[in-house]
Amino acid sequence: MEYSTKTLAAGCFGKIYREKYNDTWAAIKKVPQHLINRRDLERECQVYNKAIHPNIVKLLGNPTLKDSKWIIPMEFIFGEELETTIFKSQQSQIQLTPSVKATIITGMCEGLLHLHSKDIVHQDLKPENIMVEHDTHRAVIIDMGLAKFFRNGLNSAVDMGNEAYSSPEVLQRRGQRDQRSDVWAMGKIIAELCARVRLHTPSVCPAMIYEILSLQGQQYCNAVCRMVQSDPTVRATMAGIMPEMRRAGGGGNTGEQQRGHLPTPFPHTEVKDPSPRPHAPPLSRAECTALPKIEVKTTLQPQPIQRSPSPARWEHAALPMTEVKMTLQPQPVQRSPSPARWEHAALPMTEVKTTLQPQFVQRSPSRQDGSMQPCQ
């Protein structure tokens, strides 16, 4: 059995014309007077006036009666119906890239969330009642003719809408159209947009959605599964689902921005155990024996060494700035018989897991051999 998207309400029929209204283009809705009573017309205008939002079509002025027709000026959307975008790709002017899909999904969900926050039930959600702007891809929910106020289980209008996007409880006559049935309809619309296939209404359930969307790596899979739960008491609400929708819609761009601003890796270390500075006094024999064995776990970058005025101090400048991970037992150092070589005993036993390029420091002119000693 095929379910029709045709709206089950005679009073909602009318024609839309693009005309100028107060120096701007407008979608002029013309409804024969005998198809809609004044009470329903006033209720529709109240819905528009209360539901002002970028993702809800705007009412531009009060309805007027002309030639036995009600003239209702609406915002004109320079775009196309979502029905065309999803199912008529040859006629569509919108390319459904992941970012465009995210913009459309987030927009129409924001619009429905705003309606529900004002206690308004749309009742007739379907791709034909969602417009998408060509330039900005802004999604706009239109046709509030069947929308009703819903407070404490009381409705301001009869339950009407289309069958193809009706929730299970509505089709089985077990419940009336409310915010939860709107959520179910929106979940099916999102699934069809992501998969670009028309889904058979009775078969729509979390298992079916998971099978269709998870294979494509869709980030909306879990959220839509919660929206199409058959039991309305466990079905997600728009307020509960929106944080996940916003994250899913903005995740791709955020990741690209973060990847684009990653700093170039540059190893540097922090000294937590102070070591001798270039201008410290010469080490005594007792201090030499206290130098620990150090295991370096970070990649070290050799630092340039400036010659100290004193030949006895230049070795200290070669000590790398390291973060000490663990201190081992100090190794005893015996004093060299030659006063010219004692400084080497002061250098710690260092186990380096990365290869460092040695820096060479020229000996002081006061040295008699004129040789160069490598930095340890």
Rank of each mutant, 00 (worst) to 15 (best):
V333K: 11
Q219F: 02
Y165W: 13
D40C: 12
F87W: 03
E44H: 03
V132A: 14
D119I: 07
V183C: 06
V183W: 03
R198M: 13
I28Q: 04
P243A: 02
P168A: 06
S89N: 08
E192S: 06
E163D: 15
L213V: 07
V224K: 04
Y3M: 07
T7N: 07
C45E: 07
L113A: 09
H114K: 01
W25E: 15
S308V: 02
D124K: 02
V158S: 14
L8F: 12
N162C: 14
T7P: 00
V47L: 00
A26G: 05
R43Y: 03
G252D: 06
P276K: 10
Q176L: 11
K29H: 03
V352L: 12
D143L: 01
Q229C: 15
P265T: 10
K325V: 14
R307I: 15
R335G: 15
C12S: 15
F149Y: 11
T298L: 04
T233F: 02
T354K: 09
P304T: 10
A318G: 11
D40F: 08
C12M: 11
D231A: 00
K15F: 06
S275F: 07
P202A: 05
E44A: 03
A26E: 05
M208L: 12
T85L: 01
M349F: 14
N22R: 14
A147H: 01
P365L: 09
Y48G: 03
A340R: 05
G249Q: 04
L8N: 15
E19Q: 11
G111M: 04
K66I: 13
T85V: 15
M186I: 11
K126M: 00
T254Q: 12
N162Y: 01
N37F: 00
I52T: 11
Q376K: 13
P292C: 04
T269C: 15
C205V: 00
Q357W: 00
F76S: 01
T97I: 03
E80H: 05
R180E: 11
S371Q: 14
K148D: 06
Q373C: 08
K50M: 13
E44P: 04
D178P: 01
W25T: 14
W70G: 02
V183F: 00
F13D: 09
N155H: 12
P339R: 04
T201C: 01
K30G: 04
Q93H: 12
M186A: 12
